[in-house]
Write a protein that binds this DNA or RNA. Structure first.
Length: 102
DNA sequence: CGTCTGACGATGC
DNA sequence: GGCATCGCCAGAC
């Protein structure tokens, strides 16, 4: 799988996240082969192709992506809640419950 | 073509 | 437990 770029590995991993679960930038970066390239996961999301469930990618503490990235405040949250993701009072994803661990 | 920035996170102090 | 710094390296300017 080394003939693909880091981004494509990221896309592959993200596309395999099941509905109702989330993964963190750092974890995805780790799986993609660059444990410290969490930033690039975010960059990959920004350049993400249509159809990629990038709303299932959150920060380590459950923080969601910038609102504008999903067309407005609450958009990502709505998508996640629709998949059964539970949120904490702080507006963050309940990682304890939905974090998809390897 | 040099510099700055960035959907982040680990580490050091 | 909060703040500063480094790593990652592709785009924007």
């Amino acid at each position: 799988m080394d003939s693909r770029t880091f981004y494509q590995r990221v896309y592959r991993i993200v596309s395999e996240i099941p509905a109702g679960s989330v993964m963190t930038y750092g974890q995805i970066a780790f799986y993609a082969g660059k444990p410290r390239a969490a930033r690039f996961v975010g960059r990959a999301m920004r350049l993400a192709p249509p159809g990629l469930p990038c709303h299932r990618v959150v920060g380590k503490n459950g923080a969601l992506a910038p609102a504008e990235a999903f067309g407005g405040p609450g958009a990502q949250r709505a998508l996640l809640e629709r998949e059964g993701i539970a949120f904490l009072p702080g507006g963050r994803v309940n990682m304890k419950k939905h974090w998809l661990q390897g």
